[in-house]
């Protein structure tokens, strides 16, 4: 299968990428890992007139622990996350999600920032980013702006980038206290999209109460969705089996799944409830470790 013809350039600096994007206008798209974009182009679901390939830009493959957050550059591949000690020692939710992204070969090429920008409601990373309250650093020729993930994810395959902007970096806050988290994904086979995915994480205060909580859902709404009511169930409370069950039920209420080849709506909602509870149990064990 072949995409329609397009023009292509492979700049070697961020400045050159931004200039090219500005010059080429609306028809231009950034090509990073391409593991979602290229299949979509081959299926002619996307047909950019111009691809700006950023794979040759040096210095975008960093995972840096700075100023209370971990900064992940635009060319960090999923497999770099799998192997990163910085990630495994700072964010359990990310560390548990990374091995479940696509398949091992796709993980060698696909990027976290690209997946975040893609905003596929069946993509895993944006739920993790919602739960972790990440921020997206957008860069354009005129400067940088930092966008909270809730404002970045607009809709089905739609982010809030302006023309001429690229996702330069994603920033994942570190726990302020003792924290834990998990991404639980149900998939039919390796490489399939999630049937249901739930990212859960929280931090404990000095009294052992939940100071901050993040719960977000994959593949059960038109976009990755924060389960706000479920988070509110948790905040200020002492962790318990009953509390986690209640949060799971609240999370299921935030899901509006469709019945399709991967399962019925009713069943998926039940999976959300169970996976939220199990994720929170995992998070508690980590926070208390």
């Amino acid at each position: 299968m072949y995409p329609p013809a397009f023009n292509y350039s492979a700049p070697t600096s961020v400045e050159e990428v931004l200039t090219t994007l500005t010059n080429e206008g609306d028809g231009a798209r950034v090509l990073a890992g391409g593991q979602s974009l290229i299949p979509m182009m081959k299926l002619r679901l996307a047909s950019p007139a111009f691809l700006v390939d950023i794979n040759g830009v040096a210095g975008l493959d960093y995972i840096n622990d700075v100023n209370g957050h971990v900064a992940i550059g635009a060319l960090v591949r999923h497999n770099d996350i799998v192997k990163s000690d910085t990630i495994s020692s700072t964010n359990h939710t990310m560390a548990s999600a990374a091995p479940w992204i696509a398949d091992p070969i796709v993980r060698n090429r696909g990027t976290l920032c690209g997946s975040v920008a893609h905003c596929d409601p069946e993509g895993d990373w944006n739920s993790v980013m919602l739960a972790a309250r990440a921020e997206v650093v957008a860069q354009s020729a005129s400067g940088e702006r930092v966008i909270p993930i809730d404002d970045f994810i607009v809709d089905f395959f739609t982010n809030s980038l302006q023309p001429g902007e690229i996702v330069k970096e994603v920033r994942v806050p570190k726990y302020s206290g003792r924290g834990g988290g998990a991404y639980m994904k149900l998939e039919r086979k390796i490489g399939d999209y999630a049937t249901v995915g739930v990212a859960s994480q929280f931090e404990l205060d000095g009294d052992g109460k939940i100071a901050q909580a993040g719960i977000a859902l994959t593949a059960v709404n038109a976009k990755n969705t924060r389960a706000t009511a479920a988070e509110q169930v948790l905040v200020g409370e002492t962790p318990s089996d009953e509390l986690f069950r209640e949060a799971g039920e609240a999370a299921a209420q935030a899901a509006e799944p469709e019945t399709n080849v991967r399962g019925t709506a009713e069943w998926k909602r039940e999976v959300v409830s169970v996976y939220t509870r199990r994720g929170l149990e995992t998070a508690l064990a980590q926070a208390q470790a």
């Binding site: 492979a10 090509l31 391409g34 593991q35 390939d53 091992p104 060698n108 090429r109």
Partner: peptide
């Protein structure tokens, strides 16, 4: 994965890369 090749030693799916890359 039938199209897997090693690009600089790393397995990649060559149906999901352009030759220019």
């Amino acid at each position: 994965g039938a199209c897997t090749v090693l690009v600089n030693g790393t397995p990649m799916k060559s149906c999901t890369m352009f030759a220019v890359q």
